[in-house]
């Protein structure tokens, strides 16, 4: 994971964009993580006959090359499906700037190197306005310093320490946590017999 995300930003002002809209269920019947780019925002991007919808921002010039989204409140609400994040990343999105994200979506993004800077409503509105200009706007999300750079401006964002570290180190959480196996075993050794779930097969 790079320490910065730089690129063209597209404005997606809708509030409460849920994971059903980000990744409709017909793309979920899969056992791999791949092949989800076409599914991302499919109902917003394509007509029934799979031709692109001219009214969707990512189908228009210059935003078909967007790497960053500026979004409405409560982005990623609803289902836990990580497919939504996989699809966004496969579509080329590397950062999503918003005021609030649903918890599971936020954690899923971190696991996949998708940066989600949280900004104030004022900053979001400012960035959304600039991103909507017909020439487009390029932003740099500087994860290390927790600022979004736009021209001369440096706008602060929130990101908790652990998420920031995960982005900067690009580590595998599962392998990293196994380094604490002794602590897990110690915890387990303190559990009573009836605190150890054993599911009947």
């Amino acid at each position: 994971m790079p320490k910065t995300v730089h690129g063209l930003a597209a404005a997606l002002p809708l509030a409460n964009v849920d994971t059903d809209v980000i990744m409709p269920k017909r793309f979920l019947i899969t056992i791999t993580r791949e092949g989800l780019a076409d599914g991302t925002f499919a109902d917003l991007r394509f007509h029934d006959d799979e031709t692109p919808r001219a009214d969707f921002v990512l189908n228009t010039h210059p935003w078909h090359e967007a790497r960053i989204l500026v979004v409405g409140d409560n982005f990623g609400c609803g289902s836990s499906r990580e497919h939504a994040v996989w699809g966004l990343v496969q579509l080329g999105i590397r950062g999503i700037i918003g005021t609030s994200f649903a918890g599971i979506f936020y954690d899923n993004a971190r696991k996949n190197g998708l940066a989600l800077p949280i900004v104030s409503p004022e900053v979001r509105d400012q960035l959304m306005l600039a991103a909507s200009h017909e020439d487009g706007a390029n932003y740099t999300i500087d994860v290390e310093n927790r600022v979004i750079k736009h021209g001369e401006a440096e706008l602060p964002f929130e990101m908790d320490d652990a998420t920031q570290t995960a982005h900067l180190e690009g580590r595998d959480d599962t392998l990293n946590s196994l380094e604490f196996a002794d602590a897990i075993r110690k915890f387990e050794s303190r559990l009573g017999e009836r605190q150890r779930v054993r599911v009947i097969q």
Partner: peptide, 22 residues
């Protein structure tokens, strides 16, 4: 609470999750 697929892998491998208090 609900988790994503990467966290499902994490629970399978470690019986734990990385967690931030709400």
């Amino acid at each position: 609470f609900g988790i994503g697929t990467s966290e499902v892998e994490h629970v399978l491998a470690t019986q734990t999750l990385r967690y931030k208090r709400l």
